[in-house]
Design a protein around this nucleic acid. Sequence first.
DNA 1: TTGAAAGCGCTAACAG
DNA 2: CTGTTAGCGCTTTCAA
Lengths: 341, 341
Amino acid sequence: MPTMRDIARAASVSIGTVSNYFNNPDLVAEDTRQAIRQAIQQVGYHPNAAARSLKTNQTLRLGLVPLISLEDNYSLDPGDYAFLEFLSGINTAAAEAGYDVLLSAATSAAQEVPIYERLVGEHQVDGLILMGMRAADERLRLLQESHFPFICYGRGLQEPSYAYIDVDGAAGIEAAVDYLVAQGHTRMAFITPPPGLACTVQRRQGFERGLQEHGLTLVPEYLEPGGFTERDGQAAMHLLLDLPQPPTAVLTANDVCAFGAMQAVQSSGLQVGKDVSVIGFDDIRLASHWQPPLTTIAQPFRRIGALCAENLIQCITHKDCLPQVLLEPNLVERQSVARLS
Amino acid sequence: MPTMRDIARAASVSIGTVSNYFNNPDLVAEDTRQAIRQAIQQVGYHPNAAARSLKTNQTLRLGLVPLISLEDNYSLDPGDYAFLEFLSGINTAAAEAGYDVLLSAATSAAQEVPIYERLVGEHQVDGLILMGMRAADERLRLLQESHFPFICYGRGLQEPSYAYIDVDGAAGIEAAVDYLVAQGHTRMAFITPPPGLACTVQRRQGFERGLQEHGLTLVPEYLEPGGFTERDGQAAMHLLLDLPQPPTAVLTANDVCAFGAMQAVQSSGLQVGKDVSVIGFDDIRLASHWQPPLTTIAQPFRRIGALCAENLIQCITHKDCLPQVLLEPNLVERQSVARLS
DNA sequence: TTGAAAGCGCTAACAG
DNA sequence: CTGTTAGCGCTTTCAA
């Protein structure tokens, strides 16, 4: 690989001028630029990233640490199909701003914090994107203490002092409850996201608020702890259907969970969208292709990912800015909800 | 952030000794090690990655360039849910060997090669993982010319001279044809992956071979160009059903495509697994939860990803080794195929 | 077993 | 406008 020295020699200029060519082109005379450009073209030169980083203290990389755990699906975001869209959004927006994305897997929750420490300590990235926020999240402390730029997809439970992009899950669930009530339902259950996640608490509050507003009381058995997988949905729905008085409508943790729940309904000889209504969360692509098409609370993952990347980069370059974006989710009506007379 | 100099000072040793502590611990006396360990603990020191890379010429990073294109879903691997599993495998295996993964999105096919050039030129990564291999793939030339370590998930059409991990798609399709014949089918169609991909050609050959072996002739109308999305499957299946004499069984590009195809069958008032049989490819998690559960040709994506990472790292560290792994796919029988009398 | 010193490829003063 | 030069933080001889 050629170095800047080689380019300088080939263009018969000094190494400093080549540096200027890259970082302050207007300081360089047009003919000199021409010569340098040619030399670069000829050997296919690219500046060495490590050398540049060492000097400038910036990597042009954004970090993301997915928790890929087979045992505990505690915060299995990456197992969630939505993660893909999220990642695409990050990646696309990052690329547009000249950043790459560094992925560093944690294969258990215990590994997680050390990985963040290493990424920060080694200067591997200029900023970090967090996701799958927990009700009590160690990562926040670490990053805030070290004054390292970061942004979260999701918020913790108290009013956050950090940058985040989030979808108002409570409002989404509340809107879904409104909708169900409008369709004549009164017995509504909620298969929640995994316990421990911040969004689980938030959405549960939305659920309670929704019921309350319509003078409905929360049946404790209708609050079923669930998760993001089909298995979770399937198991929880069976539990719900086994109740002496099963709910007529069920909200779920996400679309995949809803798919599992629908599967349980069908294998119990009941019909989704008729005997039992199901509402998903996320609106992944398959939701509209499911049978019956799934009514769900849409989150714009790609956009969220892009917002995370853009705003994080903003934080990195402009320091002391604190983007806090709360998006409104959007109920997409399809055919998995029955209208009761 | 503390530097090695700080550690050296704190431990009252020279900077070279601290370096030895990390890279040649046995050269350092136990008490000295103790002192250094303590100093490191105290300030939370991590070696600066850029400085280290600059000197050692290795980054401990593996590169992956997903093609995230909204217009042309030419090689929309990342849009495929299987990508997630693949990525998890890579990420996990990489992490185990001390590597991180660098993602650099290409948002159009035109951007792709320049991104590879940049990654190589900037020394951003120690090796690259390619996927979505095309019938004629520019990336191969580039990487082979520059003698940069890389490995492919998938093979080009001629016998490859490069490292790869692949699943024998032709054999998979052939086995599926065998299976369909055993179930009494003779009119079989194939909704192919996107044109241009190497696997499309390979699988088509498997399809033809399969038919041939059973003395069946290929009906040109039964070879329907498709893709990896539900839309692709849906559209192609409708075309197939509109034929004067529709097929009784349909192979598809992947499970998601199969889902779309099944949707088309149902909306035509026919029943999957009875009037029309459908076979997927990949065996993503949802396949078994679909209604009816999808018979499909399984690819172990997580394992493939892990193999890619492990073998690439092998290539990086041991040079001149040429892993070429061909995995046999596996037909998973479920309920989307009818037995004809 | 430890220390001193050169240099990886680049940037950013600064001098000319 | 261009050249010279001193590091960025680390590894790696080589001497002591």
